[in-house]
Simulated assay, not measured.
Amino acid sequence: MKTTMIKKYLCATLVLVAALAVTCFQQPAFAGTDDDFISFNTAPASDFMKIQIVEVPEAVAKGIVSYREANGPYKVAEDLKKVPGMTDELYKMLDPFDEEGDIVFEKAGEPGMNAY
Score class of each variant (00 low, 15 high):
residue 4 T to H: 01
residue 113 M to N: 06
residue 41 N to A: 02
residue 69 E to D: 15
residue 114 N to W: 06
residue 103 I to Q: 04
residue 15 V to E: 06
residue 84 P to Q: 07
residue 106 E to Y: 14
residue 62 K to D: 13
residue 109 G to V: 01
residue 58 E to K: 15
residue 43 A to K: 09
residue 59 A to K: 14
residue 101 G to D: 11
residue 112 G to L: 08
residue 16 L to V: 15
residue 94 L to M: 13
residue 77 A to N: 05
residue 86 M to Y: 02
residue 24 C to W: 13
residue 106 E to V: 03
residue 15 V to D: 04
residue 90 L to D: 04
residue 44 P to I: 09
residue 3 T to M: 06
residue 96 P to I: 02
residue 31 A to Q: 11
residue 110 E to C: 04
residue 107 K to C: 02
residue 40 F to W: 07
residue 79 D to Y: 01
residue 94 L to E: 07
residue 47 D to M: 14
residue 98 D to K: 06
residue 86 M to C: 09
residue 58 E to M: 09
residue 10 L to A: 08
residue 2 K to V: 00
residue 3 T to A: 11
residue 83 V to P: 05
residue 40 F to T: 12
residue 72 G to W: 02
residue 24 C to L: 15
residue 81 K to Y: 03
residue 31 A to K: 12
residue 20 L to Y: 04
residue 61 A to M: 12
residue 56 V to G: 01
residue 12 A to V: 12
residue 106 E to R: 09
residue 77 A to V: 02
residue 16 L to T: 14
residue 113 M to A: 07
residue 78 E to P: 05
residue 66 S to H: 09
residue 111 P to D: 01
residue 1 M to S: 09
residue 42 T to R: 06
residue 65 V to H: 09
residue 61 A to P: 10
residue 45 A to S: 14
residue 56 V to S: 02
residue 72 G to D: 01
residue 44 P to H: 03
residue 78 E to T: 15
residue 53 I to G: 03
residue 94 L to D: 05
residue 76 V to E: 12
residue 88 D to H: 02
residue 95 D to Q: 11
residue 82 K to I: 05
residue 7 K to A: 13
residue 77 A to K: 08
residue 81 K to D: 00
residue 33 T to R: 10
residue 108 A to Y: 09
residue 111 P to N: 01
residue 84 P to C: 07
residue 104 V to T: 08
residue 85 G to W: 04
residue 93 M to E: 14
residue 91 Y to F: 15
residue 112 G to H: 04
residue 75 K to C: 00
residue 84 P to L: 03
residue 20 L to H: 01
residue 51 I to M: 13
residue 57 P to G: 04
residue 74 Y to F: 15
residue 6 I to Q: 05
residue 13 T to G: 04
residue 93 M to D: 12
residue 40 F to Y: 15
